[in-house]
Amino acid sequence: MRWEELDQQPCSLSRTLAVIGDRWTLLVLRDCFLGVRRFDAFEKRLGVTRHLLADRLKKLVEHGVLYKQPYQQRPLREEYRLTDKGLALHPVIMSLVSWGDTYMADERGAPIEHIHKACGQRMKPVMVCSECAEPVGARDIEARPAAAFGEDAQRLVAG
């Protein structure tokens, strides 16, 4: 499978990686969730070249993850905002952050605390079943090929 063909695969993870699967894009999304909106602010925080940043932002806009909103007319200046599609990536980013807090933090611990506004407590993301609300982990889920994808999906499921 070639990197530039990921978006054509019958696999939701491959299709997702085609849009958000590189380190700079994930860091742009992290910053979006931390309230960064302007090109210069992304550039300063990330230390990435203007060309690379422009490419990643353009891709996120083209795929409907971000949209541009003018904040100044003369000269035209735009900021980047998360769409509903972009906001739906929050659990993904939070899961990666939680994994990093658990397995990649140094002796000082997690660099950022995430506080649930409703109860005021520090929180960690938990995956739950959409039907019964029970917490689920890797060993609690069985993957089955969807009938609509036939053999294409069969090769994705081990076993």
Rank of each mutant, 00 (worst) to 15 (best):
H114Y: 13
V136W: 02
L66C: 03
L6M: 11
C132F: 13
G21W: 12
E78T: 05
A158H: 02
A138R: 08
G120C: 00
K85N: 11
E79L: 11
P75E: 12
L89K: 09
C119E: 11
E151M: 04
L26V: 15
L53P: 09
Q69A: 12
V136D: 03
I112Q: 04
V48I: 05
R2I: 08
S14C: 15
P10C: 13
D7S: 15
D40N: 10
L53I: 05
D140H: 14
Y67A: 02
D152P: 08
E79C: 12
M1F: 04
V61R: 02
E134S: 11
A110H: 11
G47K: 09
R77P: 12
L17H: 15
L82R: 00
E107L: 09
S95W: 14
E142W: 03
G47H: 09
R2C: 12
Q9W: 08
I20Q: 10
G21A: 14
G150F: 14
M127P: 05
F39S: 00
Q9F: 08
L156T: 05
E78M: 05
Y67V: 10
A105I: 06
K68R: 11
V19N: 11
L53C: 02
L76S: 06
R50F: 00
L26H: 06
C129S: 15
E134Y: 05
R37P: 02
R81F: 05
F42G: 01
E4G: 07
L66A: 05
V126A: 06
D101L: 00
E113A: 00
K68L: 01
E62W: 00
